[in-house]
Design a protein around this nucleic acid. Structure first.
Lengths: 225, 225
DNA sequence: CTATGAGTCCCGCAC
DNA sequence: GTGCGGGGCTCATAG
């Protein structure tokens, strides 16, 4: 990984067209050709280009050293008015990614294992059940045998209401499931979402408490064994 | 901006929970408290934390130097098994962002100035016109005086069809605009989207050619003057 | 502060 | 490859 500090300006042309005015910033060039230019604020690079870009170097009209990164229809050029620092480091070439255990997927899996969190006597009918309007996260049956379409979110906002209603509508049209109840299950449901859901007969279950107190997942125990 | 190269492992707990196994990676710490940990592949950081985090440093159970970044309900800890390099640089403290001239907004503004691109004799009625189902990008009138709701996208995918139909439905319900035509205007409209739009009587206008040949925007000239 | 939507989003999975 | 949705999305803006 090569890291530079330089007084530079940038132009980008491709999916959009942008110009970045001259200033002292950092450049990170990775061994796969990915490049990013950062200022001293925030996490997102000012400019960047993905892996696999073609590099070339030249002096522009005003005799300024310029780097050019090209990739299919995209071109990024960096004019290096002054280089303050330039260093190279060897990093581990592993592909390791952070291992996560609380994605929406995990929440969904946990709900499938613990359907009573959704309601007493609930049973799981299926996950990712196709509706013709896309797959609904969980299809369950309540204690009376009525079907319930459950949209699972970490944080449920307004969109979730329309989403689950769309699924329920599609399921009702098939006639296969009788009259289907609509439900949102999430760690956090925003106030406006609660209100909108209430108005549209979408039930809401906030599972935060049960989730916090959940047992270690079985996989952890088997892995330890 | 402080830049380290170190053999490190990371844990994160907050919106999710992740662990990153030990390895040599780079750390970028910015003056606003934003921090990111990179390997030598791709543009996205392995782990990160946004601006405004609280920093502290301590030695863990195994006497490993550990950095802790905390922010509301989130905690990121970095165990520094070995520090290879540690440097600090002063960057310009400007807030400069790349200046773009091809966002969806620019495209929208340009269409408002050049309504004939949408169709001969078209006139603009309004931008961001409220429909009760959200604002439609452009409301126009065709040569015959019929209203047209236009959804503007850089790249139009399937979602755009449902979006504009939703707006048209809402506009029709008001009765204010008579029978409203639905239209998608985009630099690029995906094949599946074209097909879906055709089936649902949503008209499609690909404006790429006219956009490429467009005149320099007036603002540029006034700025130069 | 929350809600909403853009983004050169990135990224992975399904088809 | 394209389409589609998730993301610890991030970031900006409107209310």
């Amino acid at each position: 990984m090569r890291i530079l500090i330089a007084d530079l300006s940038v132009t980008y042309a491709g999916r959009g067209d942008t110009k970045l005015a001259r200033g002292v910033r950092s450049i990170m060039v990775k061994s796969d050709g990915a490049i990013s230019i950062h200022n001293d604020i925030g996490n997102k690079p000012l400019n960047y280009m993905g892996k696999g870009s073609l590099f070339s170097e030249y002096y522009d009209d005003e005799n300024i050293l310029t780097w050019r990164f090209e990739k299919s229809a995209e071109v990024l050029t960096i004019s290096m008015h002054r280089v303050v620092s330039d260093s190279q480091h060897i990093l581990d070439l592993d592909n390791d990614k952070p291992v996560s255990d609380t994605t929406e997927r995990h929440l969904q899996a946990w709900l499938v294992e613990n359907p009573s969190v959704l309601g007493l006597g609930f049973e799981i009918v299926g996950r990712e059940v196709q509706t013709g309007e896309g797959p609904v996260d969980i299809l369950a049956k309540d204690a009376d045998g009525n079907h319930v379409a459950v949209e699972v979110k970490r944080v449920a906002m307004l969109g979730a209401v329309g989403q689950v209603r769309k699924y329920v509508e599609a399921l009702n049209e098939t006639g296969e499931y009788g009259v289907v109840r609509a439900m949102i299950a999430a760690l956090d449901i925003r106030p406006k979402t609660l209100k909108s859901a209430d108005k549209k007969s979408v039930e809401c279950v906030t599972v935060r408490a049960a989730w916090k107190n959940r047992e270690p997942v079985p996989q952890d125990q088997s892995a330890a064994a």
